[in-house]
Design a protein around this nucleic acid. Structure first.
Lengths: 333, 333
DNA sequence: CTGAAAGCGCTTACAG
DNA sequence: CTGAAAGCGCTTACAG
């Protein structure tokens, strides 16, 4: 009951000074256990909620972490965010979330806003065209930050991602095993490190078997259902030969399914399709899509752990963590 | 470049007082345009980022909004959250997000944490078993809050949701139109208002056609794929007669699909299925699922608007907004 | 049009 | 073991 209560009311109620209340509630200082008990009781009866703006201002310590992602409505980032939030919350941190929509200006603006709001550090999925310079403002403020999912080669931060090269190898090896000899790759942009490594992995694995992925069978594009549809359709129209199609992610694969169906190809028989991400939808497709699970939840969890460690001052060299992907084999291959 | 810069450094750089800097940057007070220009220039060159902990402490005004949802990884809430964030961000607000996992204790705890962090107000999808009393602590702090999606009959807050009754009517009318005469309903709990209203809508529409939904054809359960599978299987095993199955949401429908397939029923021919939510997955199912779109993005947007209006002190009676659902007819019916 | 000063609610040396 | 006092970075009457 009652309005906003400050440490002062608690002090009066408990018959001690505000300093004692602060010390008693934080567990610092050598306050007698009797006093601590009385203070806690007063705080509880009054419904005292400490004002973190004040404590942050005074102590510089913050219980807020900033999470900056491309688009939280994308299932991959939604899961990643959910695990960041869960781990942060377990450690008493609250998560501030903002979307960049892959716009580097928006990213700069939300980072600045978050610094102003006093976050203790950042977990960032770098927007397109980000470079280490992009995060100079964070370093200027001596704040820790963890980059994830997209590697921009920033040596001043931890990086948590997945092993794209191995993911590419897995997709290709699986298809070769299934007897395929001609391949195509749709979706993703050359400017993105994840794309290049994934493609390298595919080519590396094919080369081991004396096979190739011809340049005219690689179609770039911002990964989306629409690009999957358009580029796969274009590829088919071009007369390119392939019995196995690797899609940059599951959304692209959904588009590719539509294009292949339109062209009268039977997925899982005439042509095999592999995606990446293992979004929930991939299991419900017809036929269910073979895909590479990249573990967004684990990335979220590891990132939160790395950041909170850094906030707590555990120094040491920055770490680069690449989580191993896993092939989920279904009937599309 | 350089470390944290405060209003004091800006004042020194510009050769004015801190009061003038504050007034100039906020646009309040009658500061000469020359001074304003000079102050802004100094602020920019020094890379000044105002400390919001300090301004909030002093002025009581906050640019933080608290968003409390069940589970941000659920696509429905992910989309809702994305739109809250977008609208908040457009208005200069940052979003603090926390999951409750539908646990009312967790909900109480995150609300308290958020109050401590100084949010200006709340957008909340009430966790299961919430009552208006649950939010007393928010009212005690004179903070505005908007409830959404789940109606708990709290007259002290705005409510933004969808019209469940009409959604139920739509589902039933559509099935009757398609020639169905026997019905079943799977998933959802009687304790949830959305469930009761949706079911009422179904029954109301059926009654208009002299049809009924027998009690033994209604199977409750926490909405999930697993419940859809188990309860639909059970329903089939019980020998209940139905040619049309209404699922509480699309997740339940995915489970129902599996149970119906196992039982050798052909969806879209022997039996029709309708879901609610129009999750991306519903379009990719085989056959594509007829479902009711409930517009989570619009709910997010409206909620953010309502909250920001309330924060800005636009008083007036609390509003209850029910967005009209829309039937998305696909081949499962 | 501008500045000096008080104060928001905490935390933290410092003194006792 | 406890309290008085300073100060974090702002905003805002108040005075001039």
């Amino acid at each position: 009951m009652g309005k906003k209560v400050s440490i002062r009311q608690v002090a009066e109620h408990a018959g001690v000074s505000v300093a004692t209340v602060s010390l008693a509630l934080s567990g610092k200082g050598r306050i007698s256990s009797d006093t601590v008990r009385q203070v806690k009781k007063s705080a509880a009866t009054l419904g005292f909620i400490p004002n973190r703006s004040a404590s942050r201002l005074r102590s510089g310590r913050s219980l807020l972490i900033g999470l900056v992602v491309n688009d939280i409505a994308n299932p991959f980032f939604a899961e990643l965010s959910a695990d960041v939030e869960a781990h942060a919350s377990e450690n008493g941190y609250l998560s501030v979330i903002a979307n960049t929509n892959d716009d580097i200006e928006k990213q700069a603006s939300v980072i600045e806003t978050m610094i102003g709001q006093g976050v203790a550090g950042f977990i960032i999925v770098p927007a397109d065209t980000s470079t280490p310079d992009t995060f100079q403002v964070i370093r200027d403020h001596d704040m820790p930050y963890v980059l994830c999912v997209r590697d921009i080669g920033d040596g001043k931060a931890d990086f948590i991602g997945f092993d794209n090269f191995t993911a590419g190898v897995m997709a290709a090896e699986h298809l070769v095993e299934k007897g395929h000899r001609t391949f195509a790759f749709v979706g993703g942009r050359l400017s993105v490190d994840n794309f290049r490594r994934r493609l390298d992995g595919v080519r590396h694995a094919l080369a081991r078997h004396g096979l190739t992925l011809p340049d005219n069978c690689v179609r770039e594009g911002v990964p989306s259902r629409a690009i999957g549809l358009a580029e796969t359709g274009d590829l088919l129209a071009s007369g390119a030969e392939f019995t196995a199609l690797i899609c940059y992610n599951d959304f692209v694969a959904v588009g590719a399914y539509a294009a292949l169906n339109q062209a009268g190809r039977t997925i899982g028989e005439d042509v095999a399709v592999v995606g990446f991400d293992n979004v929930p939808e991939s299991e419900s497709l017809s036929p269910p899509l073979t895909t590479i699970e990249l573990y967004p939840r684990a990335i979220g969890n590891r990132s939160a752990r790395a950041l909170i460690d850094a906030v707590n001052g555990s120094s040491g060299p920055h770490e680069r963590v690449y989580l191993a992907p896993e092939l989920i084999s279904r009937s599309s291959t």
